[in-house]
Amino acid sequence: MSRKHPIIAITGSSGAGTSTVTETFQQIFTRESITAAIVHGDSFHRYDRAEMRTIHNTAIEQGKNPPSHFGPEANDFAALEALFADYGANASGKVRSYVHDAEEERQFGCPPGTFTPWEDIEAGTDLLYYEGLHGAVRTEEVDVARHVDLCIGVVPIINLEWIQKIHRDRSARGYSTEAVTDMILRRMPDYVNYICPQFNNTDINFQRVPMVDTSNPFIARWIPTPDESMTVIRFANPRGIDFPYLSAMIPGSFMSRANSIVVPGGKTELAMQLIFTPMIWRLIDNSRKARGLPGLDRRDHS
């Protein structure tokens, strides 16, 4: 953690919905005139698409379970921790992007399935924002979580997570249901060992629970809508959280435990705005004061 140069990390599995949370944070950053260095977790994959395919095929031929993007073999956890440590100390570090498709090829000038060159983080940022699979990972070799000032877990129940992943990978990436199912099965050991334990290290978890039948996610024709869901929001440390205020501001919400509030799925973004905005104010105010700068100007945020 760093008072001068804070780090926010959004962590969740593939298909969990971390990109939706990122959209909410970007709205807050724009409204509050905060400059964030945005880092995507897939930029710390160890192999590009062609290399990963070769490694996968070789493992299958040898009768082994191929490495997955959930685990350490296919990711450079040490480089991710080094970035967080560098940023926390000096607001510096090396970043790159993974190019997913033709649209990003036009943006970055690199072929899909490859990485852009490593570059220095732009000077003058207020914070580092990470979104990906491993923002709170801990292993015997690395401890990424210890560098994070605000860590958010996005954890829909497993059947909903699979439904979202299947629909995304079929529509956006052209995979068949069978291919996505095979991927889910192969990743399961790494999911259990490296994804799930992170949610013990987060400050807040958002877990969307559908109110419709998702018994067989592999045949589901639609993703449950937000209005067909409830979201459980769990705080690791509820001290300082104004639950009466949240309950008053979010119709249909209720406390399920002393550290948890449940909100209608359609009100999740509102809940995020209400919860995250004052947390970001505190991080930035503390950062600017530590650097001898004035705090945020909140006179007009309409």
Results as ranks from 00 to 15, higher is better:
Asp203Arg: 03
Arg187Gln: 12
Thr214Phe: 01
Gln198Ser: 11
Val192Thr: 13
Phe206Leu: 14
Val209Gly: 05
Arg186Ala: 11
Thr202Met: 03
Arg221Lys: 15
Met211Asp: 10
Arg221Val: 14
Val192His: 12
Val209Cys: 13
Asp182Tyr: 00
Arg208Val: 09
Asp213Leu: 01
Phe218Asn: 04
Arg186Asp: 07
Ile184Gln: 02
Ser215Lys: 11
Ile184Phe: 05
Pro217Met: 02
Thr202Tyr: 00
Pro189Lys: 07
Arg187Leu: 03
Arg221Ala: 15
Pro217Thr: 01
Pro189Phe: 08
Met188Arg: 10
Tyr191Pro: 07
Gln198Gly: 09
Arg187Thr: 03
Gln198Ala: 10
Pro217Cys: 02
Pro210Met: 04
Ile204Trp: 02
Tyr194Pro: 00
Phe218Arg: 04
Val209Asn: 13
Ile204Lys: 05
Pro197Glu: 08
Thr214Ser: 02
Pro189Trp: 08
Thr181Lys: 11
Thr181Asp: 06
Asp182Val: 04
Met211Leu: 15
Arg221Leu: 15
Met183His: 13
Tyr191Leu: 08
Ala220Phe: 02
Pro197Trp: 11
Val212Phe: 07
Asp203Gln: 10
Val209Leu: 14
Asp190Gln: 09
Ile195Ala: 00
Gln198Glu: 12
Pro197Val: 08
Gln207Cys: 15
Thr181Gly: 10
Val209Ala: 05
Thr202His: 00
Pro189Gln: 06
Ile219Ser: 08
Ile204Tyr: 04
Arg221Thr: 15
Ser215Cys: 09
Met183Glu: 14
Pro189Thr: 06
Arg208Glu: 07
Pro210Cys: 07
Met183Pro: 00
Gln198His: 12
